[in-house]
Design a binder for these strands. Structure first.
Length: 379
RNA sequence: GGAGAGUUGGCUGAGUGGUUAAAAGCAGCAGACUGUAAAUCUGCCGGGCUACGCCCUACGGAGGUUCGAACCCUCCACUCUCCA
């Protein structure tokens, strides 16, 4: 899932995002991420609802998953106070006071009209003690139950998308049975629970059990890639993923590098989101079939070849490395556009290949080949 | 013709006796980026070494004062401004 925090995959128009490649339909994202925290502060949920929800707002007919704001409250480190009811915090934009709780977060996500909402969780910092993480995890569990209870049973009135009906599958009937996703109409969002527990395996196990027992549409592993060593992250993923329900999507939040995705899939993960492809694109770090490269390097100054000969995106099929370097070095806006188009394409292409490999029962060898290619020195 | 200001490392530009191989910015060369306060941040950036230290060359040129000069003095060269 490309990340589009403020209802925008940075550097790209919605149309550009839909047309990353003139040739390949694979290179076209089916879902993007939005962020409750950022959108509630600006432009505000009232406005978004009034304007028909995020889909209509950004002219995006495909799926949207919204982060609940829990992670931002943790990572922005502005003045905040976590209590049982929710979190008091100050806007990083103007310092104004705000409050997020399971109820308010779900309300906002529903009114934004997203397809998948995330439970409101607390993301503990790396380095906290077992006792501290346990306390935080238990709060996340209580908040998970409240998030689920806060989900509207009737679909939001203002959210009608012209070509919708592509929401998440698995319409597990709930009490009341009114949360039915009607064809052509965006219903209430699906809701994913989030597993926490820091780097402690016993806590992760308990968290998986608690979250899996609730009536979520999918389960996410949260609280990772927050500064812990990579090995520690994968110890948690390798341990937790197999414990997750087999009949629900599994989402590893905030991860990661191309290698991380492949390793995550190996562990049993279905979904990922990460700012890496888009942010790195804007800082000149590009992913290719032969490993990562920095387009500003002098060695690309006269390189007339395509960025990645194996890629069919707009960037790789129309301009040279030399031109991309020139744009970057000159600070041209087009550099961010071309680079973002490519990096997202690379990630989408990678996941497409992963799906094919799984379908043809050859994922293990695919993984081995891919990891060796990526670690090879870029020419 | 007269009066004044200036010449600093690739560029712009601080510095006016020692802590100056010389601020800062730019350019250049690398690196980082993992549920996006990021078109951002970090490092290197005269040369050479048997490098956590030493040597050489450097603030227009030449000479001088001084224990010590980019900084003070003399002459020369060049640039700019103003007045006739």
């Amino acid at each position: 899932m490309p990340v589009g925090t403020s209802a925008s995959v940075k550097a790209l128009t919605t149309d550009q995002l839909l047309h990353l490649s003139p040739q390949s339909s694979v290179l076209s994202p089916q879902i993007i991420l939005n962020n409750t925290y950022h959108l509630m502060l600006r432009p505000g949920v009232d406005l978004l609802e009034k304007l028909g929800g995020v889909h209509r707002f950004m002219n995006w007919d495909r799926a949207v998953l919204s982060d609940s704001g829990g992670f931002q409250v943790f990572s922005l480190a502005t003045i905040r106070k976590v209590r049982e009811e929710g979190v008091d915090f100050r806007s990083h934009i103007d310092g104004s006071a705000h409050f997020l709780s399971p109820e308010t977060s779900i309300d906002i996500q529903s009114r934004m009209g997203v397809d998948i909402a995330m439970a409101f969780d607390e993301c503990p910092a790396y380095g906290l003690s077992h006792a501290e993480v346990e306390k935080s995890m238990q709060l996340t569990h209580r908040w998970a139950a409240r998030s689920l209870a806060a989900l509207p049973l009737t679909r939001p009135s203002a959210i009608l998308s012209p070509q919708a009906g592509r929401g998440v599958s698995s319409p597990s009937p709930r009490d009341g049975g009114e949360r039915v996703r009607e064809a052509g109409v965006r219903g209430a969002p699906g809701l994913f629970g989030i597993v926490q527990g820091g780097i402690f395996l016993d806590l992760r196990k308990r968290s998986v059990e608690e979250i899996a027992a609730m009536d979520f549409d999918g389960v996410a592993i949260g609280g990772l890639s927050v500064g812990e060593p990579k090995q520690e992250m994968f110890d948690i993923v390798d341990f937790s993923a197999p414990l997750l329900p087999t009949d629900k999507p599994r989402y590893l939040m905030g991860v990661g590098t191309p290698q991380d995705l492949v390793n995550g899939v190996a562990a049993g993960i279905d979904m990922f989101d990460c700012v890496m492809p888009t942010r790195n694109a804007r800082t000149g770090s590009l992913f290719t079939s032969r490993g990562k490269l920095n387009i500003k390097n002098a060695r690309f100054a006269d390189d007339a070849g395509p960025l990645d000969p194996e890629c069919s995106c707009v960037t790789c099929t129309t301009v040279s490395r030399a031109y991309l370097r020139h744009l970057y070095v000159n600070g041209e806006i087009a550099a961010s556009v071309y680079n973002t188009i490519h990096n997202i394409s690379f990630y989408l292409d990678l996941m497409s290949k992963v799906r094919q490999a799984i379908a043809s029962n050859s994922f293990a060898s695919f993984r081995e080949t891919f990891l060796s290619q990526q670690t090879r020195e870029t020419e």
